[in-house]
Design a protein around this nucleic acid. Structure first.
Length: 327
RNA sequence: CCGCCCUUAGCUCAGCCUGGUAGAGCAGCCGACUGUAGAUCGGCUUGUCCCCCGUUCAAUUCGGGGAGGGCGGACCA
């Protein structure tokens, strides 16, 4: 796979494709993702981390921003608490497979209080309407009271791209509004509009609707035991197709089991073996997601057998991080 | 600063006027049925009724104070 294909693999969208083509051919390129520190890595973090691994292979230097100031602005606790979790998070990323030598972990507070940064931040505030900033803020739940801090939050994300000197901003699709805001407003303070890449969002495990929730409901995280993973995967929504019908209320549904195979498992494993009792035809082996999906659609691969293989693969991906957590 | 409204189960809300410690829908959990899940049946759980003080035999309900949240405070009127 060449650099361009690696960058584009499993990306939902890229802005813009021309810019990415140019980056693929360039040397000394840098990409970043920012995360609010949290004590335990969940499957959402892992999805962008898998993309970072692709990018490392494509020749990018990777910066992981441990966004302690953002977490603070989002009401996630005191700086002391937040920084304690940042270090644990870094170790888990490494355990998950980010190459320690090719990855720079940066704590936001090490540069976001600099005078220059603050002055640029105020300049951006001057260029941005409150409603635009609010719309860009991905994590505001409807019904929550929006704080001024949460309007500043996306502007800092935009500015981070400048101050970390990155060529490519990476995030899940929920980050696209932030990145569009950055593209629109950074030029107004004399900076380049950043190129961005967005990963898909995994649908809710139990319903296939919307985005898998990390706070409420069922998610998969690094602290899950083998049994817990098996239990959660087994309870997942999984009709035998990659394109399920909408539910009674007309909401679109995805197949989260297949999504996880596509976005988490196949990027990390050459082949996937589905263990299956002889009674149902014996074991199956796949070397691509497309082949697995085709067998699911045709009925050759039963969801229950697919779930067994998925739980096993996820367990192997998580195991190093789980051990690290226990240490 | 002033005015009005809201705060009851995880969520959306009813009940309060005419005091006797509480309900619905959804969610969740369990079972049946499917070789998974969902759908469909059957069953079940859940509450500092925002806080404090007062009245009362008794306060979620009445009165006072406080906190949090929403909306409004030029003209058109």
């Amino acid at each position: 796979m060449d650099a361009y294909e690696l960058i584009m693999r499993n990306a939902s969208e890229v802005v813009t494709e021309e810019e990415v083509r140019a980056l693929a051919a360039a040397d000394g390129k840098r990409a970043y993702v920012g995360y609010e520190p949290s004590g335990v890595l969940h499957i959402g973090h892992m999805l962008t981390a898998t993309k970072l691994i692709d990018l490392q292979e494509a020749g990018f230097d990777i910066t992981v921003l441990l966004a302690d100031v953002h977490a603070y602005l989002n009401g996630k606790g005191t700086f002391e608490e937040i920084e304690a979790t940042a270090e644990r998070m870094k170790e888990q990323f490494i355990a998950y497979g980010l190459d320690e030598d090719k990855t720079e972990f940066v704590l936001g507070s090490t540069f976001q209080f600099d005078r220059e940064y603050i002055l640029d931040l105020h300049a951006l505030e001057l260029e941005t309407s409150l409603s635009r900033a609010e719309r860009a803020m991905a994590e505001i739940k409807s019904g929550d009271t929006v704080r001024v801090s949460q309007a500043v939050y996306p502007l800092m994300q935009a500015l981070d791209i400048v101050y970390l000197d990155v060529d490519l901003a990476v995030g899940g699709m929920e980050q696209r509004k932030v990145h569009m805001l950055a593209r629109d407003t950074l030029p107004s303070i004399g900076e380049d509009a950043p190129t961005s890449l967005h990963t898909p969002l995994i649908a809710d495990l139990e319903t296939g609707i919307g985005k898998m929730s990390s706070s409420a409901g069922t998610t998969i995280s690094m602290e899950d035991s083998t049994d817990a993973i098996e239990e959660k995967v087994n309870a997942a929504f999984c009709p035998p197709t990659a394109d399920p019908d909408p539910d009674e209320e007309g909401r679109e549904r995805e197949n989260p089991v297949l999504q996880i195979f596509e976005y988490h498992v196949f990027p990390r494993f050459e082949t996937v073996t589905v263990e299956r009792p002889d009674k149902y035809g014996g074991n199956l082996e796949y070397d691509s997601y497309a082949a697995l999906e085709a067998d699911m659609e045709s009925g050759e691969l039963h969801p229950m057998d697919a779930k067994g293989a998925l739980a096993d693969a996820l367990d192997r991906l998580i195991e190093p991080g789980r051990k690290q957590l226990e240490a």
